[in-house]
Every structure is written in structure tokens, then in C-alpha cells.
Design a protein around this nucleic acid. Sequence first.
DNA 1: GGACCACTTGAAGAGCCATTCATGTGTTCA
DNA 2: TGAACACATGAATGGCTCTTCAAGTGGTCC
Lengths: 126, 126
Amino acid sequence: MGHGADAKNTTTARERLETVGAADVAATLQALATPSRLRILARLQEGPCAATELADAVGMEQSACSHQLRLLRNLGLVTGERRGRSIIYALYDNHVAELLEQALYHVEHLRVGLRDTPASAPTAVT
Amino acid sequence: MGHGADAKNTTTARERLETVGAADVAATLQALATPSRLRILARLQEGPCAATELADAVGMEQSACSHQLRLLRNLGLVTGERRGRSIIYALYDNHVAELLEQALYHVEHLRVGLRDTPASAPTAVT
DNA sequence: GGACCACTTGAAGAGCCATTCATGTGTTCA
DNA sequence: TGAACACATGAATGGCTCTTCAAGTGGTCC
């Protein structure tokens, strides 16, 4: 994806948003919009993990964790595989890991107050 | 603590999450977790826009839009500058645009069911 | 079979959040 | 000055969501 000048980009973010469905995009991003799920995903990025161990790692009750895991699974962000009496959870694929990575990266830089090119006036679009 | 080193990645996502503050990360991502704000940001990515015109572009009431704009401004995602009797809104910087871009990109690919490298233990799922 | 473990599921309650309605502030123009 | 415009603000409402408590299901080992 090109940074900087994308002067002749025919597909706008707005079009893509409505194509995919703004509600669906919002729903997926909502998965990253809570501390508990954020911690779950971050822990899972280090490797697969059983449910109880996972709940313990992120410091939440096992039941609450299970509820969130179901939500994440329904969104296609994590997978769960039965192994003995445990169920091993893992990130669905690298896209999820990358999305988490990007979110972290950007927020880290936003918090610092770092600003590069102001997006305000560079390209005249009308 | 490392001083902004990206190359040598000994810091896990979990560490970074807690360093920045999971709640703050969640709060910022929450800004992208609703259709209305998503549309606002997507419209703003095309260029600056006055409040009323913006509300009209995303199809929401002026008051509701103003409330959301305040929220986005408090999060440091957009800026508003008075010009005449209008107030021109714009994305704060390119990081915001990129974050939106990344979110769109990833969700587009998630929805397709596309999967590349499994992020962890190969598993057959449900 | 029965005790036990790992995890899920359902319901209920508290808190939060986005929208609406009504009103308030600031600006331009006649 | 007053009317009209552009936008912000406050309160109230309805809906949604995260958590907790209390069962319920599937699996293992003796």
C-alpha cells in the first residue's frame, strides 16, 4: 500500500467501507476495542494457549474469558481446538496478528503526540 | 526499557499493550468501532470538510455528528478549525489515515475468508 | 459408574454509548 | 440591532455489552 501521494486513487475509503459493510467493519474493530479482548489477542499472539491458562494470563475469570472467546471465534479472529479435556485457542491467521500489531503501533505513536504530514490540506479533493 | 527500537523485537505485544495502557488502546480503537464514526473518518480522508456538509455526507443528523466529532477530537484523531461561520474538520495526521486504511484492508481480507500463514499451531477448526 | 476437571452456556444486573430533542453560543449579513 | 445561519452542548432515552453467578456438557482417570 502506497504511502504519501495517492493522487489518482479511484477507490475511496468511503466506497470500500460501504462495499464491505460499515457495520461489519465496526463489528470486527469492536473486537479490538476492549482491554480484556485486547489482552487475550496479545497473549495469543505469543502462541496457542488453553482456555484456563489464557484466562489466568490475562487476569480475568474463566467464565468471562470464555464469553469473550466465543465472540472472537464468531468474528473469525481466533480458533479453538479440543485437545484432551482442554481447548487450545489460537489466532486465526497472520492477518489478525498484523491488525493487532498495526493498532499497537499507531496508538503508540498517537499517544506520543507525534505528527508527520498533516492530512489537512495536501491534496485538493473536490 | 528500550528507546524506540523497532528492529530488535524483544518486546511482546502484551508488554507494549500494558506499557501504553490497554484501556487507552481500547479507547482509541473504539473510535473505529462504530459505523457512524467510521463513515466520518472515511469521508475526512478524502479531504477537510465543514461540519454540516460532513453530517450530510455521512447521512446523520447534525447534532449526532457534532457529538461524535467532539469524541474524535478528544481522542486526537481529528481537528477542527473555525473558518467564517463554519468549522472545518480534518484528520489529525497521516497516522489516522493509515490506521483506517489498515483496518479496511484487513477486514476486507478477513471477510473473504482468506487465510495465509496460520499464525500458530496448525489446527482443524470446528 | 462416579468423582473430578476444563470449559461452555444462560440469565441477570450494572454501566456505557449513540442518538434525539431542545436549547445555547458564536458569526455573518441586512 | 435583529434575523438567520453554523455548530456546540445538555439532558434524557433506548439499546447494547461486559461481567458475575449458577448451572450444564463433555472428557479423563480410578
